[in-house]
Write a protein that binds this DNA or RNA. Sequence first.
DNA 1: CTTACCGATTACGAAATTCGCAATTCGGCT
DNA 2: AGCCGAATTGCGAATTTCGTAATCGGTAAG
Lengths: 137, 137
Amino acid sequence: MDSLDREILAILRRDSRTPYTEIADAVGTSEGTVRNRVDRMLEEGVIERFTVATRTGNVKAMVEIDVAVDVDTTAVSDAMADWSEVDFVWQVSGEEDIVIVADTTDTDALNGLITRARELDEVVSTKTRLILDEKLG
Amino acid sequence: MDSLDREILAILRRDSRTPYTEIADAVGTSEGTVRNRVDRMLEEGVIERFTVATRTGNVKAMVEIDVAVDVDTTAVSDAMADWSEVDFVWQVSGEEDIVIVADTTDTDALNGLITRARELDEVVSTKTRLILDEKLG
DNA sequence: CTTACCGATTACGAAATTCGCAATTCGGCT
DNA sequence: AGCCGAATTGCGAATTTCGTAATCGGTAAG
């Protein structure tokens, strides 16, 4: 992770389809070096995955979830990560234990998601925040 | 946005470098159709961008930020989106107004970020949650 | 029932990108 | 200076993307 890696990452964050050749020109190196470094960063886990940022519907939200003290939080979040509208599941520090970020087609779908969460025995309470506007860094 | 679009999106979320040819095979159509539909979804904004999910350091966190009632929340979040460690800036409903998701190399860098936020006149208070574990949907 | 039309899909050759690998360069170390 | 390992570079080959024209499927009009 040197400054060249960071330059490459900065470009990929904006557009991960930028060809290696173009990145190489932009950062002043060769196509092969960019490729080697991207491969390495993938192996090291610096790059977790190549993905797409989507807005499939009009409703994005984060749901903060409080689970009972004696449950396996990891198992619960694993299950939630498989729900189709879910972008991220985070285990977090603080008052609540899990935060879900979801992208739903409409408020009904969001409501369905929240209901699904609340129906789990392990879930004590939920708190939902609508994401009114999103900016990518 | 039909079910074919959703199938394509599901694949791209997992790995946005999957070739059109391979996606076409997986969903049972031709390369050109996948290409047309991805192009259309980009234009419509369903796909906001092709990007990479990164974990450059060991510390990810979300910072919930409360801003004063009379300030331009959008301007504040615009400024924050330019901070280098920031992945997302969300304007949200609920108690706080802005949520930042950041990926920092260490706790010092995170602390610097929080300090930078708190130094803004517009910011009334911050509440930080460490992201202990992340799962992608 | 046939025809005309429109958008979506398919087909395919050309251009661009990625890939594999060998040769070279670069730094650190003795 | 000389050596070693890792990183970088330079190609041709394989794969993917791209542009475009032909085809298909559904539908409304004659």
